[in-house]
């Protein structure tokens, strides 16, 4: 490893051969003539013309077409429901509140009549949230997750931050369309095709 860390100029280094800068007027003149008749400008013209004829357009017409996003993508949060009971998965442990580096999560819990911990209000201040994803990572119940819903425009950020907004709507849950967050370490659908061969030793 040591040999890679040594940045000093050694024998193995090669210096680029640079064109010497002309000093004499005659040399300057020769440089101008050489550059003028080299035809580099026409290479530029040809390249853009070729691209126009090929018509290989790379535009994604956004509202009509959307690029696939990674399963690790961290867009606006959601609270998940239990698969069997349909209740909020959150147990009010407060780990997400604790780990949040932006201090934007606030949980109100209380002891209910059966002496069980009940989550009252769960809010995220999206004005402060930095979408680091620690809350989703630390959650032991997979309750607070990130969705892939990145098109969130509203009059107020608060429209996304309360329990009612975060919790999966009941009708979507009943249709079985509650999506789990693949999260950290998740791979893309096309991950296999992206693998390239790399040498195993250097």
């Amino acid at each position: 490893m040591e040999q890679f860390k040594d940045r000093n100029v050694k024998d193995g280094y090669m210096f680029m051969e640079m064109e010497s800068i002309p000093v004499e007027p005659w040399d300057k003149f020769k440089q101008v003539v050489r550059r003028t008749f080299k035809g580099e400008l026409f290479v530029g013209l040809w390249v853009v013309f070729r691209e126009m004829c090929r018509f290989d357009i790379h535009t994604t017409q956004y509202p009509l077409e959307k690029l696939p996003i990674s399963p690790r993508y961290r867009a606006i949060h959601a609270l998940q429901r239990h698969m069997d009971s349909g209740e909020n998965r959150c147990i009010g442990c407060g780990l997400c509140e604790k780990i949040c580096p932006a201090n934007c999560i606030k949980i109100d819990t209380k002891i209910d009549e059966n002496s069980r911990k009940e989550v009252g209000e769960y809010t995220i201040n999206f004005g402060r949230c930095i979408f680091c994803g620690y809350c989703a990572e630390v959650c032991p119940e997979l309750a607070i997750v990130h969705t892939d819903d990145y098109e969130n425009a509203s009059e107020q950020r608060a429209h996304y931050g309360a329990v009612d907004d975060l919790l999966t709507p009941m009708d979507i849950f009943k249709m079985g369309k509650q999506k789990e967050f693949m999260g950290f370490g998740a791979i893309n659908d096309n991950a296999d095709s992206n693998i390239k061969k790399t040498p195993t030793s250097y």
Partner: peptide
């Protein structure tokens, strides 16, 4: 349009 096509874009659509 032409600038867009030469830069592999679509231009106004």
């Amino acid at each position: 349009k032409i600038l867009a096509f030469m830069q592999r874009r679509l231009g106004p659509m």
